[in-house]
Design a binder for these strands. Structure first.
Lengths: 208, 208
DNA sequence: ACCTGAACACCGTTCAAGT
DNA sequence: ACCTGAACACCGTTCAAGT
C-alpha cells in the first residue's frame, strides 16, 4: 500500500485530514505517525517539529483563501458582498481558520479582501486616510464578527442564558425587544445589517 | 509557613496568579502543586480536575467584570462610552479574557454592558426588533474588535507585512491611502471611529 | 474530611544507530 | 538521504492507602 518513501506533502495532507475531522487537539505526532504507518521520528525529518508542522498547515490554508469577486451595483452593496463572501469562505473551514487565528495570521489571510475593499471605497469617493480607515473598519468588523460567531457556536448554551435575563421588567416596557433578545440571534441577518450600517455610517460621516 | 490546610480559594488564587504571569499554558497541575507546596493529587480533591479548575477561574473573571457606567450627553456618545469602557476592562486581563473566550463565555461576560446598551438605544428612540438588532450589532462589533486586536498583538509581525503589499501601483494612484495602510493601525482611534460610524448607521437607517 | 506516593497512559523531542 | 527504536522529560488522572 505505501508508495515508495514518505513525502512532506503526504505528511501535511494527513495532518490536515486529522484536523478537519477531529480538530487540532487530535493532531498528535504519534497519531499522525500511526495514520501514515511510519515511526514518529520520521515525521520530524520531514517537517521539523509539531510547531512548524502547524505553521505549514496554516500557510496552506491562507493560500487557499483565493481572491474575492464583489457583486452588486452600488459601492455599499459591493462592500457588503465582499464581507459576506469572506464569511462564507471562513465558515467552510472552521478548525483550520481557528488555527490561522491562533497563530496570528488572520490579517494576512484577509489581504485579498482588503484589496477589493480599497477598490470599492475608492469608487465610493473616499480618499487617503479616510479611505484607509473605512477599509480597516470593515475588515475589523468582518473578522471580529466571525470570531464572535465561532465563539457562540462552540458553546451554544450560555449558563444563565440571555433569555433569562430579559424576562419581565428588565426590558423597560418594551416586550418586543425583550422577546427579540431572548431569541437566539439570526447571525446571517445581523451580519449583513451590521456591515451595511457601518458602511453607511462611514460613507456619510464628515469628520466629527 | 503553610497556614493550616489547603483551601479551594487558595488553589484558585495560585492558579490565577500563574495564568496572569505566564499565560494559561503555564498552568499545569504539577507546577500548581509545587507553588502551593502540596502533592498534585491534593488539588484534585479541591477542584475536581484541570477542566473544572479552568471553569472556576473563568467564572471568577466573569464576575469581576462589573457594571458599566455610560458617560456623555447624546445616546451615540453614551453608547460609544460603553463600548470604550468595556474595551478598557478587557484589555486589563488579556490572558484570563482569552480563557473566557475559549470557554465560550464571552457573551455572558457582556451581559451588564448589554443592559446598558438597551437603555441607551431606547433613549435614542429605537424600539422592539430594531432596538434588539442595534444592541447586538454594537455588542458583536465591540467583542469582535477586541478579538481581532488580541490577535494582532500576539503576532505583531505579519509575514509579507501589510506595508509591502501597498507599495507602488497597487493603491490606484492614492499615495495617502497607501501610506495610511502601510502604517500600523491606530487601534484606539479606529475603534472609536468604527463604533461611532456603526451607531450612526444604525440610528439613521430606515429599513432597506 | 483531607492528603499522600505510586502507577498508568499519554504527550513532544532528542539521539545514536541503522540502511 | 531517509528511517528506526529507545530514552528523556514532561503531561493529566486514578487509586489504594494513610491520618
Amino acid at each position: 500500500m505505501s508508495r515508495s518513501s514518505l513525502t512532506r506533502e503526504e505528511v501535511l495532507e494527513a495532518a490536515a485530514a486529522l484536523v478537519r475531522q477531529h480538530g487540532p487537539e487530535a493532531l498528535t505526532m504519534r497519531k499522525l505517525a500511526a495514520e501514515l504507518g511510519t515511526a514518529v521520528t520520521s515525521i520530524y525529518w520531514h517537517v521539523g517539529n509539531r510547531e512548524s508542522l502547524l505553521d505549514a498547515l496554516v500557510e496552506r490554508t491562507v493560500q487557499e483563501m483565493g481572491a474575492i469577486r464583489p457583486t452588486g451595483r452600488t459601492p455599499v452593496a459591493r462592500i457588503v458582498s465582499v464581507a459576506r463572501g469572506l464569511r462564507r469562505e471562513l465558515r467552510a473551514r472552521p478548525h483550520l481558520i481557528a488555527m490561522v487565528h491562533e497563530r496570528g495570521l488572520t490579517e494576512r489571510m484577509f489581504l485579498p479582501a482588503q484589496q477589493a475593499l480599497v477598490h470599492e471605497v475608492h469608487a465610493a469617493g473616499l480618499r487617503g486616510a479616510r479611505a484607509a480607515e473605512a477599509v480597516r473598519a470593515v475588515q475589523f468588523q468582518t473578522v471580529g464578527f466571525l470570531l464572535v460567531e465561532r465563539n457562540r457556536e462552540r458553546s451554544p448554551v450560555q449558563s444563565p442564558g440571555e433569555g433569562d435575563l430579559w424576562g419581565v421588567a428588565t426590558a423597560e416596557h418594551d416586550p418586543a425587544l425583550a422577546r427579540a433578545l431572548a431569541r437566539p440571534a439570526d447571525q446571517d441577518r445581523l451580519f449583513t445589517a451590521s456591515v451595511r450600517a457601518l458602511v453607511n455610517g462611514l460613507l456619510a460621516a464628515g469628520g466629527t
